[in-house]
């Protein structure tokens, strides 16, 4: 019997500052072949273990990226880590985005805050496998322009995709739009029949985006959501992450809206 609770120890190859409270750890994990949207359990020994989305594309075989926002006890220790340090990882876990199923179709990505992390894995995958997909639009919002993550990729994305940004509040040097990310839906006119919407962000944001998408007549099956729940084991044993009879850690974190619509507590 293999023991899934045992993390593999890996070296931090590099650390990228994404925003004032988000850092990306580049880890020495090779040929993981994850699905975009899957997550890892990241251990800082002595402090704890947390679920973190893999934010790099599976097309990159020499490392994986985990982008971590500093929100509490484990994540703050993650932020103190330095290149060369050792952390523990296990995974990849969960069901990722239905990459094959949406092949050839247009994609509308909608991300809020650190919710862009799992989307970035998919977006960069499409960048590297461009022929496999149709038109791509990315709508991204964060509290302020300084809170936007993966900014170093925006130029790259703009050259291939349609990128729209919005900040919740004004800040110095930001001349872009101000408002909530669901407002950006008005800026795009997707061919609904041929488009999948892929959404990840805080619960309240996902809820209003889903409402916006429904107003645009998106069928539930074409609304792909990545959920977050408190998790302890990541493998369907600890009981923490349920939505009804589903465990977000093994049945999700990605669900199409039709699969979860009927459950209580989906938005909290």
């Amino acid at each position: 019997m293999s023991n899934q609770y045992i993390p593999q120890t890996v070296e931090i190859l590099g650390i990228l500052e994404e925003s004032r409270d988000v850092k990306t750890l580049r880890l020495d994990v090779r040929n993981l072949r994850h699905e975009p949207g899957q997550f890892m359990e990241l251990s800082v020994f002595g402090y704890g273990e947390i679920p973190v989305s893999i934010s790099s594309s599976p097309t990159l075989e020499d490392y994986i990226d985990l982008s971590v926002k500093n929100v509490g006890s484990v994540t703050s220790v993650v932020h103190e880590a330095e290149p060369g340090d050792t952390v523990g990882v296990r995974g990849p876990y969960g069901r990722g985005f239905p990459v094959r199923e949406v092949g050839g179709r247009d994609l509308l990505f909608i991300g809020g805050g650190i919710g862009l992390a799992p989307l970035r894995s998919f977006i960069d995958y499409i960048r590297d496998e461009r022929d496999g997909f149709g038109d791509v639009s990315i709508l991204y919002g964060a509290r302020t322009a300084d809170d936007m993550v993966f900014r170093q990729e925006f130029d790259d994305w703009r050259s291939m995709f349609d990128l729209h940004l919005i900040a919740d509040v004004e800040s110095e040097g930001w001349y872009g739009r101000v408002g909530f990310v669901n407002e950006l839906l008005a800026d795009v006119s997707p061919d609904i029949k041929n488009t999948y919407a892929v959404v990840c962000g805080p619960s309240i944001m996902m809820k209003s985006v889903v409402k916006g998408l429904k107003d645009m007549q998106f069928p539930d099956e074409q609304i792909i959501l990545s959920f977050e729940r408190r998790m302890k084991c990541g493998i369907g044993k600890c009981g923490h992450c349920n939505i009804g009879d589903r465990y977000v850690c093994v049945d999700g974190p990605v669900f199409s809206y039709d699969k979860v619509r009927g459950y209580r507590e989906i938005w909290g």
Partner: peptide, 30 residues
Amino acid sequence: CFDVVDRMDLYSRNGERMRFWDSCMNPSFT
């Protein structure tokens, strides 16, 4: 249901990962 907690001795740098029964009736569960 269970919770998972790390403990480490700061001097020896030895530690353990423990699991404990947890309760869904506890507000911090989710």
